[in-house]
Amino acid sequence: MKRIFAFALLLSLMSVLVLKPAGSYAGEKPDTTATPVESRMQLAYLCGADSVILTATLNLKKEDGTVNLKNAFIEFSASNGESAKSLGKFATDQEGNAICKAPVAGLPADKDGMINYTAKFTGNKKYPAAEASFKAKPARIRLSFSIQDSLRILKVDVTQKNLKGETAPIAKEKILVYIPRIFSLLKIGEITLDDAGSGTLEFPKEIVGDTLGNLTVLAKIEENDNFGNVQGQNVINWGVHKQYYKAEVPSRELWTPIAPLWMIITLIIMLAGVWAHYMYAVYELIMIKRLSKREKPPLF
């Protein structure tokens, strides 16, 4: 577990995700506040089909609190203890995250196949340097779909490169299967791999896909001591076709911007009726005034 994160500032990062982001700036301006500053970095690792995604999170511990560091450049590299390969420099966003995606092929691995990933913030006048690293072995998950005896079967095959550089199965590991949703991943099952590095899952019914029923399915190894986080994905149209929401009872729709027709018509009729009579009364008054001009006064 502890290998996954170099620093586990659990509570603070938890709240990073919760609260509105408060960014700070890693510019060159000298720090005006003299409070001691400590930079902290965490590194999250995810191995995809043929690339790895490294997410470094940088934040500052000040006397008066913790903030994310934004626009700081993080240098990512991979090494096997002897040679290192730079993966590039990436700036942090306002959550303090810098994300690096690198192809797995060609990364230097040690004799066990492990690759040591490092994220490094060199620091500047204002903020001290910080570094985090993480070790994992690349792996690959493939998903395939088939229908057997009218049952929908999801099959996963998980492989790694063995010492000779050949593809070899990963046995006995636990695979979690998810559907990605707007805010989170919906878990639809678990698979334990057999010796051949594969396993199956009866695909559940009544999972809502898009309007055509397409579903993106993710299979993951999570928090594994050797492989870290590994993920494979595939698309299948086994989902229930998405029906956009309709009110269960026809709405009276008084809340819509436009009023119902009957209401508009009633209003117009009533107002027209009333104002026509007003006009008539005013017309009579005007006529009274005119009459007085025509027949010059009997009274004065």
Binding site: E284, L285, M287, I288, K289, L291, S292, K293, E295, P297, P298, L299
Partner: peptide
């Protein structure tokens, strides 16, 4: 309004 109470004015009023 120059109302003087002529029959027509009365009627209209």
């Amino acid at each position: 309004l120059g109302y003087t109470g002529t029959p027509e004015q009365q009627q209209r009023l």
